[in-house]
Design a protein around this nucleic acid. Structure first.
Length: 699
DNA sequence: GTCACCTGTCATGGC
DNA sequence: TAGCCATGACAGGTG
């Protein structure tokens, strides 16, 4: 499973879920692109992306053993629906009137379901447009074409939609084994995001002024409120119809979200292949995706939000089921989790717990439980929460301060006993987390700005691992694209999904007793702890203060960019101080490393010099020995020559010259004289004395 | 427990 | 003058 989330500086983002399922030889690749427009992105702007705005498209073609889902396999109420023939707005109303699950015009205004490949290459050509496929006569090609035709119904360009993030065929060769990885900034998805972004910017709706956005948000919220009221009225009809109808299982979950519907399709598919559905002991036919949503009065927009949130979790639950519960524990897990009424995730909807979708993080266990009062919030309130929560989740410090967060707690957060600088995180983390969690809960209840500070929660409560990657602050308005000195990929973040699986609440509770959830929690807790331990102290500090830049960026950033960053971003004094400290320490750390490296190089060079000198010394010694040897040879030869010369010398009387009384002396002109030794010794002494004097003068 | 080594950090000075 | 860099000194972690 791959997933990518990328946030843009104005609050928009795109969530990419790639779910690879390998079920008894049947491979299913699910790609979900959740385009999360910025708060002020309007429907028309969104349509410029070629994105459908109705979840009718979620009724997409679905492969059945190598073929596309036929139209007659689609939701029966959508078979007659032709979004291409309906004007904008009417389509949505029609879909809603049919009781087909849809995504209301909240901030999550479009969501796209990518191709499904069932082990054959043909499955890669799916592209949305299930509603159009529903209106078609059925068959593979009709479904595919319907997808492309459906886009212009909302004003988009089908060609662009084809070339968009849902470009087909890239996942069909993906590894079958479920894996979790985060696409890097240079990946295909990121490039596609940039294409989308450029389109949106070209449309002039993406980079609009903040003030205009605010006004548009207010206007949109008013219209949304009105729409939601209308929707509530309309939604009552399908509820009644759904109660009367006794249709397929998918209809029994009429009010589930698009994703749940899609997964229901998957389950149907698997159920239709009992030889496959027996995988891991899962009786797919018995799996109900959501509790009786048709009777809970949740047909309002809030209800759709609820299911949208759960939809993501369901997708990942399949993955989780295969990864974590291979031994027939899947159902027990489902039952257990469903039977936990206090588990927040089951109660939270997308609006009340947007971080689950935005961060893709399973916050179950540490997000404050949402009580009935929360569930009774009006759609407008929920949408307002969505505004502030979804697109303004970060900047913990600022928000914390604004929400009355005690700075002392922050300072305590930075007290680390083993820290030489007195700054750290861990020790007082848990207590602080509890406070924050509680405050967050109250914030939710008040309908005001809420945040879910992952860092603030104890790790052992986490069910989804969160790799730290600084997110751009909500209050940071600097344009990374215009600043070449800054990285544009700051917003990349690891996403870990909610692995909660939802079942109907009437599942016997007895089965939940056999479920040992803490085991998994401990596993992930260890994972988190290991991950956290891998972080440096500054990284943990930056994480705690929600510094919107990574330590590496802070350190390596040129000074001009660094100063611009500090001036453009609305950072607290504490954050600025920490950023400067991080930069100073980071620079000094690198300098120290370089210094030690140089010092080590110097030492190594000196050692090399020593070795070289020692070798040279040995060489000189050898040369000296050779010279001495040569000198001795020369001396011997000279001695022999000397005696040979004296043996041939004769005095005036013809007698041999005694070498003990005479000596040979070479004059400057080359002549050789026979001199008595007494004279030679006296002259030698004088010369030796002169030489000593000269040498003494030289010294 | 001690020691050597590595690494991070701070203080300081030079550029 | 601010910032960067180099370096000595110190402390904590680790084998």
């Amino acid at each position: 499973m791959k997933y990518l989330k990328r946030w843009w500086s104005d609050g928009g983002g795109l969530l990419h879920l790639t779910i690879l399922l390998s079920l008894a030889g049947l491979r299913v690749d699910l790609d979900l692109y959740l385009l999360l427009p910025p708060p002020t992105l309007f429907r028309d702007e969104l349509l410029l992306l070629g994105c459908p705005t109705s979840s009718a498209y979620a009724l997409r073609p679905f492969p059945a053993s190598g073929g596309w889902r036929r139209a007659d396999q689609l939701h029966p109420k959508c078979r007659e629906l032709d979004p291409a023939a309906l004007p904008e707005g009417q389509l949505l109303r029609e879909v809603r009137a049919l009781g087909v699950p849809f995504i209301p015009r909240t901030r999550v205004d479009a969501w796209l379901v990518h191709s499904v490949a069932a082990g054959n290459a043909d499955g890669a050509h799916g592209l949305l447009g299930a509603a159009a496929s529903a209106s078609s006569e059925g068959g593979v090609d009709a479904s595919v074409d319907g997808g492309s035709q459906a886009v212009p119904a909302g004003g988009g360009d089908p060609q662009e939609a084809r070339s968009g993030p849902l470009a087909a065929g890239e996942e069909e060769n993906a590894p079958v084994e479920p894996t979790v990885e985060v696409l890097d900034a240079g990946g295909r998805a990121s490039e596609e995001i940039e294409v989308l972004r450029e389109r949106l910017e070209a449309a002039g709706g993406y980079s609009s002024q903040h003030e205009e956005n605010q006004q548009r948000v207010s206007v949109q919220e008013e219209s949304l409120q009105q729409n939601n009221e209308d929707e509530n009225n309309i939604a009552e009809k399908p509820d009644k119809e759904s109660e009367k109808s006794n249709e397929s299982r998918s209809e029994r979950h009429l009010n589930v979200t698009d994703t749940s519907f899609c997964l229901q399709d998957l389950f149907q598919l698997l159920s239709s292949h009992p030889e496959h559905s027996s995988l891991e002991g899962i009786s797919l036919g018995d799996i109900s995706l959501l509790p009786g949503s048709s009777n809970d009065g949740m047909n309002s927009s809030a209800h759709y939000n609820v299911n949208f949130s759960q939809a993501i979790s369901q997708d990942v639950n399949l993955h989780e089921a295969m990864l974590l519960y291979p031994n027939n524990t899947f159902r027990r897990d489902l039952v257990a989790r469903t039977s936990q009424p206090q588990e927040p995730f089951l109660q939270l909807n997308f609006t009340t717990n947007p971080e689950q979708i935005l961060s893709g993080t399973n916050l179950t266990g540490f997000l404050p439980p949402v009580d009935n009062q929360m569930r009774n919030l009006t759609s407008q309130e929920l949408l307002y929460d969505l505004d502030v929560n979804v697109f303004g989740e970060i900047n913990l410090m600022s928000l914390a301060m604004e929400e009355g967060f005690d700075p002392v707690e922050v300072s305590q957060l930075f007290e680390e006993p083993d820290s030489d600088s007195g700054l750290s995180l861990n020790s007082s983390h848990c207590s602080t987390s509890v406070t924050k969690s509680n405050s967050s809960h109250s914030v939710y209840e008040e309908g005001a700005t809420g945040y879910s500070d992952l860092e603030s929660f104890p790790h052992h409560d986490l069910e989804g691992a969160v790799g730290y990657s600084p997110e751009p602050s909500k209050l940071c308005h600097m344009d990374h694209r215009s600043d070449p000195g800054l990285h544009e990929e700051i917003a990349f973040q690891h996403i870990f999904h909610n692995h909660t699986y939802h079942l109907q609440p009437n599942v016997p509770e007895s089965t939940s007793e056999s479920f040992s959830w803490p085991g998994k929690s401990q596993k992930i807790s260890r994972l988190l702890n290991d991950t956290d331990r891998n972080l440096s102290r500054d990284e943990r500090r930056a994480k705690a203060l929600r510094i919107p830049f990574s330590v590496d960026e802070i350190v390596r950033m040129p000074v001009d960019s660094f100063n611009r960053m500090l001036s453009r971003c609305y950072l607290t004094d504490l954050q600025i101080s920490l950023i400067r400290d991080i930069r100073r320490r980071g620079k000094n750390k690198v300098a120290a490393q370089n210094c030690r490296k140089r010092k080590l190089d110097v030492i190594l060079n000196l050692e090399d010099d020593v070795c070289n000198l020692q070798a040279k010394k040995e060489t000189l010694k050898r040369e000296r020995a050779q010279c001495n040897k040569a000198i001795n040879i020369m001396k011997q030869k000279l001695h022999d020559l000397y005696h040979d010369v004296f043996s041939r010398l004769r005095d005036d009387q013809g007698r041999p010259v005694n070498p003990n009384q005479y000596a040979l002396q070479c004059s400057h002109d080359g002549s050789v004289l026979i001199v008595p030794k007494e004279l030679v010794t006296s002259s030698h002494k004088k010369e030796n004395q002169k030489g000593k004097r000269k040498s003494e003068r030289r010294n």
